[in-house]
Design a protein around this nucleic acid. Structure first.
Lengths: 336, 336
DNA sequence: TTGTAAGCGTTATCAA
DNA sequence: TTGATAACGCTTACAA
């Protein structure tokens, strides 16, 4: 049976509340009492009871990170940064996977686990903004995924249109004329997918090239397998470059090109978005647009915390504005 | 202000306890009362308060997964399975990263977050078994990482010696004579590293080959970068095959070989352990020994749950035995 | 089958 | 600067 504040108080010869004050670093405590209590705490190996504390305070010190799947490296890398940023602020991170499933996204938001967390960092795939905004749970949400916040919810991300533009322009600048796009989404939910496609098309037009729907391939998700399938399907169109919506698609495309005897980058240049570590070691190394994932994670945690504090009464009122972080075009071997 | 059982009880015209019974699916409830309560719950949008419940029951419904870092794909894939297995059993998963740091591993075990979780699935790197066993926290622990349980703690994993043997034998069978090993650990903490090295050496001897320390390269961790460095370092020894302790090391090695103009697999065969999806799309595709990660995750969750139940009084007494799950040698292009 | 009373360990309020 | 008392929302006896 673990020790309670009661036990500590008895041993130190003070009241329960005094122990609470010491534990929480309350300002006005006499040196004497403080040391006596500290000694008792160590002697008994006292640890505050988490459940009791959060029942009383209404805060759990835990936030939720809801992503489609950790197996997709982008989310693993993002999760890594979120966990690190949360740790620095004394928060724990509970991870939930949705596999892009709308019902799972809803459940995660509604707190299927009761109110075990103080707030959510959500990377939605199939929920529209309305569904997220109209959730019942009052715990704050910060978006980091495909859906934009539109002033109703905070959203942290890169300028997807600009990122796609930079990637595509990189291809056209090197003289590529028939630039395919792998990873278009049929589903119109994804703001990100729309923006990436817009950037691709605008870059083509700015380069004086026609936008050709025949060079576009749709995928359900963003796995290597789908990238490979997309490229196989596109190979007969005689394209000389492919912009892939994500690095994983691009890595799948590289593999498929190789299998078809298409040399990358000589016959076909390939570029992705995500800046995965994997792309720095692939054969050939993958050119990519690398979002500042650390900034996305850190700012998401900070803004969530801000929203939580604001709700509790502490802290300034949060704003729901879009927040844009930087990206960097990383030129490697897959684009000559 | 969210609704409480009290509110529901008032609306339904019953007592608080009755609401509790309905919520928890208690057997003996009259149809009439049940529907009245259910209606009230929906009308008020009642959700059980997690903190209050766990204060009362002493259980949180959350387990901890402690890994070195999610960026290492093996752990991302493992985490994916753990989260999935936990979800099926109604548990949430809190993820903590240690970066292999001993102090962080200790903190995670001692429940730096109070007793916010019911138990821990730990993949230790720098803690020895004694440190883990002698922790103060009473929450159960299941090991899935490098340290073995030695009958003092449950451990789920593959037979590392056999896995390494299978990988190395695969190389010698195809006629390779100078087989290097990348990923040896100076630190003697890691049972896994020791076993993998043993398997490597035994396979060499069984193939009538000498064990040559000059063909062994040590790494601090298991990143692609270190695999690349290991191979560059080994290249001058004229090896014709490399067994890498993990897939990430192997993928780094493939990249380095390419940079050195060494053809894989013609000049150099490479094999790893982990069965990462990445290896199915690399150029060349990576031969690997694939542990049954789903089984590791599922069994770890099940045994942790069993230990938790046993502690609470429910359930049989758990056993601390080693549990071995299967692996599969996957032959791909990196070994001809 | 349902209700009553008590208490889980903490912090907030207010008085001393 | 410290202490007594009262919640926080729930479940576990036990009684009705």
């Amino acid at each position: 049976m673990p020790a309670t504040q009661e036990d500590v108080a008895r041993l130190a010869g003070v009241s329960r509340k005094t122990v609470s004050n010491v534990v929480n670093g309350f300002p006005h405590i006499s040196k004497d009492v403080a040391t006596r209590v500290a000694a008792a705490i160590i002697e008994l190996g006292y640890t505050p009871n988490h459940a009791a504390r959060s029942l009383r305070t209404g805060r759990t010190g835990t936030i939720q990170l809801v992503v489609p799947e950790l197996e997709v490296s982008y989310f693993a890398e993002l999760a890594q940064w979120v966990v690190a940023a949360a740790e620095e602020r004394g928060l724990s991170v509970l991870i939930r996977q949705t596999r892009g499933d709308r019902e799972r996204e809803r459940l995660a938001l509604e707190g299927s686990n009761g109110d075990a967390t103080d707030g959510t960092i959500l990377s939605p795939v199939s929920s529209d903004l309305a569904a997220i905004v109209s959730r019942k749970s009052t715990a704050p949400v910060v978006l980091v995924g495909e859906v934009a916040g539109d002033g109703m919810l905070p959203h942290i991300g890169i300028d997807n249109e600009a990122a796609a533009y930079a990637a595509t322009e990189h291809l056209t600048r090197s003289g590529r004329r028939r630039v395919g796009f792998i990873g278009a989404q049929r589903d119109q939910m994804s703001h990100m997918a729309r923006m990436r496609r817009n950037g691709y098309e605008r870059a083509l037009r700015d380069a004086g090239l026609d936008v050709d729907e025949g060079l576009v391939r749709y995928t359900d998700g963003y796995h290597r397998r789908e990238g490979a399938a997309g490229l196989r399907d596109l190979a007969s169109t005689g394209l000389d470059a492919a912009f892939c919506a994500t690095d994983l698609l691009a890595l799948g495309a590289i593999r498929a090109a190789r299998d078809l005897g298409i040399d990358v980058p000589t016959d076909l240049a390939i570029v992705g978005i995500d800046g995965l570590d994997e792309g720095a070691y692939s054969v050939p190394r993958l050119s990519t647009v690398a979002p500042d994932k650390k900034a996305i994670a850190t700012r998401a945690v900070e803004r969530l915390l801000q929203a939580i504090d604001a709700q509790t009464g502490t802290g300034d009122s949060p704003d729901w504005s879009e927040e844009v972080v930087g990206f960097e075009l990383v030129q490697r071997e897959s684009t000559s």
